[in-house]
């Protein structure tokens, strides 16, 4: 354990921790655009610079190890000047289209410009302009909005381990692209959207089917209903409709989702969902009331039990349904109908 001083507070922390981690541990929030605990520290955005007494220059808190006796200031005048200057530089190369930008309301650049009172850039030079890559079915990449924090590239190479995207060109012309700039559809991208979830600005966004603002939605944390990994996710809901799904850091998924969990949620609100019970009458399925459907089933159960015994009735429960529902179906079969003929598709 080492002890350092941050903004006048003593902090004790494990050796090898960064200044950023030390600050977080006592609730001191240092702004960042590129930090992600899952990644090797890369120190790209430089917004998290802090002042360390005795150091030659400002240091990036996300990648500088805390050391014993260090005295750190996270919001000193020189720190704020540098942060403002860096935001000024970012904004100088970023469209000011927050009014129509789909990221508005949860854009870190927007939040930091607000925090540090940067209304517009003081530079009026060249701005980047790239064509949107809309070739992926589920998300688009708008490099014009990219601030090159690098998170998407590193999430793809270090967390998802797919290496579909990379940095292309250098200097001011640097942008995130695919090998040979062939576009996302022709890359090795598996559409997991984990880069999209990492993007702090509007450069990587899910393709929306309806318009909504992030401040209009409710978020509900739940568990993915596809495979058995049990990824944690949030359903974003507007007007009783799931409009987007986002990964949440859970035990098993480390903040990741796959294409199915992330983008294949249309079934929930699909027009072909069953809305009423149906009973086959004269060979055709007809909509009926719940009462009638229950009657038909209950009568059939009684009938079969009487004629052939309870073991002539079989139930298939569902590996898709809730634990509680599975329990109740086994109880229905065993306690109410009286048979152990209950199974599910574990083998398929």
């Amino acid at each position: 354990m080492i002890t350092l001083n941050i903004n006048g507070f003593e902090v004790e922390i494990k050796e090898g921790s960064t200044i950023y981690q030390a600050a977080s541990s006592i609730g001191v929030k240092i702004p960042t655009l590129c930090h992600d605990e899952r990644l090797k520290p890369h120190g790209s955005c430089r917004i998290c610079v802090v002042e360390v007494e005795g150091a030659r220059s400002l240091v990036a808190s996300c990648s500088t190890p805390a050391s014993n006796g260090m005295v750190v200031h996270t919001e000193s005048e020189s720190v704020i000047t540098a942060r403002r200057e860096i935001l000024d530089l970012m904004l100088a190369n970023h469209p000011l289209d927050c009014l129509t930008c789909e990221k508005a309301g949860r854009c870190t650049l927007q939040d930091l410009c607000y925090q540090y009172d940067i209304e517009e850039s003081s530079f009026d030079g060249k701005k980047k302009k790239y064509e949107k890559d809309t070739s992926n079915e589920f998300y688009y990449a708008d490099q014009t909005k990219c601030i090159l924090c690098g998170k998407c590239v590193y999430v793809c190479s270090q967390v998802q381990n797919t290496d579909a995207i990379c940095f292309v060109d250098r200097g001011f012309e640097t942008h995130v692209g695919t090998p040979f700039d062939l576009g996302l559809a022709k890359s090795t991208c598996v559409s997991c959207g984990n880069c999209v979830a990492a993007c702090p600005v509007g450069a990587l966004m899910p393709k929306r089917k309806e318009k909504f603002r992030y401040w209009e939605i409710d978020k509900v944390k739940t568990t993915c209903s596809y495979c058995g990994v049990g990824c944690q996710m949030e359903l974003l809901v507007k007007d009783n409709k799931v409009v987007e799904v986002e990964p949440v850091k859970g035990h098993s998924n480390d903040g990741m989702l796959c294409v199915k969990g992330r983008f294949s949620y249309d079934f929930i609100n699909h027009s072909s969902r069953l809305k009423k019970p149906m009973v086959r009458k004269n060979g055709v399925l007809e909509e009926v009331s719940w009462d009638e459907a229950y009657d038909v089933i209950a009568n059939k159960i009684t009938e079969v039990k009487e004629s052939d015994g309870a073991d002539a009735i079989t139930g298939f429960s569902s590996a898709r349904a809730l634990t509680e529902e599975n329990y109740l179906m086994t109880k229905l079969m065993r306690a109410v109908i009286g048979t152990n003929n209950i199974d599910h598709c574990a083998r398929l």
Binding site: C45, L148, R170, G171, T174
Partner: peptide
């Protein structure tokens, strides 16, 4: 021209 493009101050700042 030779900036690698990784960090903001160098990439954006040398341009300005």
């Amino acid at each position: 021209e030779e900036s690698c493009g990784k960090c903001t101050p160098c990439r954006e700042g040398t341009k300005r």
